[in-house]
């Protein structure tokens, strides 16, 4: 009997009633370590395009010149917040969460190379990719429309009717060759390795 009275009195307390009807969990805040969309720091962008090269999502990051200053810009709706651009940037232009902190602590650098693969069953040796390649043009300005070249220093050249890759390490990963190929025979793949510690 006493307990029933005790319970009724307990549950009629105004404080209990108000908390019962207005109870809410604490407002949720985004923790400071959350890896949000990358934001700009005050460091200067050198237009090396390392962020654009590492980005896995199409059109997510572009480096554009506004008011005479190069700046990376993130497109929301494309960016997947992976943070790779922050890790790849040699100048620490971008920041998000604690990526910059552990990048400094672990002395993390990303080293990327590009691997060119030509499907010889699809390639017809037209030389479009060889001529379109901006690095090729710089090395051998006399590169002809057939894609043949007398220089042995070019990335690739057409030799005896077949396109052959000579210097893969010079590729900058712009993928102009992929776009110019009518058969989708050439593919540029990015090979990235993460390095810890200071490079010797």
């Amino acid at each position: 009997m006493f307990s029933i009275i005790y319970y009724i009195r307990e549950f009629l307390r105004p404080q209990w009633i108000t908390t019962f009807f207005t109870a809410k969990t604490a407002p949720l805040v985004t923790p400071p370590y959350f890896r949000d969309f990358p934001e700009l720091t005050d460091k200067e962008c050198t237009h090396c395009l390392a962020c654009m090269m590492i980005c896995p999502a199409p059109d997510a990051i572009t480096v554009v010149k506004r008011e005479e200053i190069w700046r990376p810009e993130i497109t929301k709706g494309h960016c997947i917040r992976c943070g790779l651009c922050i890790e790849a940037c040699p100048e620490d232009v971008l920041t998000s969460g604690r990526i910059l902190a552990y990048k400094k602590e672990e002395e993390l650098t990303l080293k990327g190379t590009f691997h060119i693969e030509i499907d010889q069953s699809k390639c017809m040796g037209c030389g479009n990719c060889t001529v379109a390649c901006p690095v090729n043009r710089e090395i051998d300005p006399s590169l002809r429309s057939s894609g043949t070249s007398s220089s042995g220093e070019v990335i690739m050249r057409v030799d005896t009717g077949q396109n052959k890759v000579l210097h893969e390490e010079k590729c900058t990963g712009c993928k102009t060759c992929e776009e110019s190929c009518s058969n989708q025979a050439i593919r540029v793949a990015r090979v990235v390795e993460a390095l810890q510690g200071v490079e010797e």
């Binding site: 896995p56 999502a57 199409p58 059109d59 997510a60 709706g77 494309h78 960016c79 997947i80």
Partner: peptide, 12 residues
């Protein structure tokens, strides 16, 4: 998410 907006990584 990104997919209904742009297709993101699947829009190749």
């Amino acid at each position: 998410g990104n997919c209904p907006i742009s297709g993101c990584v699947f829009n190749r």
